[in-house]
Amino acid sequence: MFYRKICLFLLFISFCGCNADEYSPNQKFNSSTPINVNAREINTLPSKAAGTTIKIAVSGDTQRNYKESEDFVALINSRKDIDFVILNGDISDFGLLLEFNGIYKKYDKLTIPFISVIGNHDLVANGSDVYKRMFGDLNFTFNYAGIKFVCHDTNGREYDFNGTTPNLEWLRKNLTADLKADRLVAFSHVPPTDGDFDPILADPYQNLINQTPGMIASIHSHQHQPQIIRYQNGTGVPFIVTNAIIKRAFTLITITNGQIVAEEINF
């Protein structure tokens, strides 16, 4: 009986052995970690004519809620009208590879592309390096259906409000329409009205968004609250803050000819 228990334990250990050698919970990657997922996903976006209606499912804050993430993926896969998914930051909770990998495995089951943006929790410990290797740059852009999507890091508190984040210089260069895309949408985790946004950059940032020709909306997450839409001075470009996956909610963005509709969907 005792020997049988030992055999079972040894079996358990060897069972764990499938890719379970770990050098540290903080290691930046292991032999099975995917690389440059954002670039790969962007490459799989089909080409779509400018001005046609597109639908984007946006939500952040999967953190370590695998069940909610799984249900979200199943719901999106059951609908055939959505173009792509934005995971708008806080992919992980502790900035650990295990968490990034766990969420990646769930989202990789989506039948449409998903693009992931950096959140404040993703910058904890070695999280920034985990994200860069797994997903790519913290600030990046891509075009779809005549719209330029500008994804960037607004997690100012993680840099101790040192005036570098969001990187306004990078934004000035990239918040520009080009030949293929004359309209723009920005995605970032922390909204400029939040306490975790660098206070000295809040006004210049909102001014920049509002002064960008062709800007449709700036879309954020982070607050785990029902969707809200704010305007800097009551008018101009809408700052949309979505609810969170951990609250079983996402925002369905519909854009037709530069007109945007944002609707919260609970699941």
Partner: peptide, 14 residues
């Protein structure tokens, strides 16, 4: 927090 989706052995590393 993920008992329903994550097998017990997955949190063990060797």
């Amino acid at each position: 927090e993920n008992r329903t989706t994550t097998p017990f052995y997955e949190m063990f590393k060797l």
